[in-house]
């Protein structure tokens, strides 16, 4: 158990010491948030239930979690696997499942401060005010539901070559962000795009956060989609690992 803690601390420490990682993960959601704050729709109501400023904060929380997860996993992990370090760890007693689990956990740990940061921007500049217990509930909810993003980050690191991982990650950030309705409410999109959004985990992630705040509650369908994503991507990582074992990890 102590070796898992040591590895977890090592991983989080490496992430927090990486300037590239910090600038992208902190910069992206905060800058996007600031840009959208000047939107002319400010003051409107989204879907008839949610004030625009609340929608925006929850969306930027989701987007922040997504960016953090894809940056922490993605190209970073892909490069690390190509460099031989991941293989070196396989030659220690650390089990293969622990390597993947710690990677996901480390990503989850760095997502939490990103959520808090976006929320701070929300209260200071975004005009969002919530009760203390609601803040805690919202943060906890958005954190737990970020799990599929964390698994997605690791998934990309396992599946995509180091050279191509960066463009793939960038594309994913904007596809999941835009079509998941994080930059624009899904209700304002054409019908086809609205249907397509329901396939994306980013849509369901933000929908749960909004459900908590507008009193509609947490629809079980959202949970199911998110859990499905985490499970399928996690399974794919395991399968990839098995294949590498049979073929030899170069």
């Amino acid at each position: 158990m102590s070796e898992l803690l040591a590895f977890g601390r090592f991983e989080v420490g490496r992430l927090l010491r990486s300037w590239k990682f910090l600038i992208i993960t902190v910069g992206f959601p905060v800058i996007f948030y600031m840009l959208f704050l000047g939107d002319r729709r400010a003051g409107r109501v989204v879907d008839g239930t949610v004030p625009w400023r609340v929608y925006l904060m929850v969306s930027m929380c989701s987007f922040g979690a997504l960016v953090a997860a894809l940056t922490a996993g993605g190209a970073r992990l892909s490069t690390e696997r190509a460099s031989g370090w991941a293989r070196q760890l396989r030659l220690t007693p650390l089990p293969a499942w622990a390597y993947v689990a710690i990677k996901v956990t480390a990503i989850m740990l760095v997502i939490l401060p990103v959520l808090v940061l976006v929320e701070i921007v929300g209260t200071t500049f975004g005009g969002v005010s919530l009760g203390a217990s609601t803040w805690v509930e919202l943060t906890a909810l958005l954190w737990v539901t970020a799990l599929p993003f964390a698994v997605l980050g690791v998934f990309i690191g396992f599946m995509v070559h180091a050279e191509t991982a960066f463009p793939v990650v960038t594309a994913l950030m904007f596809v999941l962000g835009y079509f998941g309705g994080l930059f624009n409410p899904v209700s304002s999109m054409p019908r086809a795009l609205r249907d397509a959004a329901h396939v994306l985990p980013s849509f369901h992630d933000a929908a749960l956060g909004l459900g908590l705040l507008d009193g509609r509650g947490l629809d079980v369908a959202h949970w199911l989609v998110l859990a499905g994503y985490a499970a399928i991507l996690g399974l794919a990582i395991i399968v990839k690992h098995r294949i590498e074992e049979a073929r030899g990890l170069s």
Binding site: A6, R14, T79, A82, S83, W85, T92
Partner: peptide
């Protein structure tokens, strides 16, 4: 224990000091 060929990579995790890397590996045994 093993020291394998690493191709173009260094086989070491970037962004961390040598002593921290060695301490981590020790902890895994």
């Amino acid at each position: 224990g093993a020291m394998l060929q690493t191709g173009s990579g260094s086989g070491l995790p970037p962004g961390v000091r040598v002593d921290a890397t060695l301490r981590l590996v020790r902890r895994l045994y």
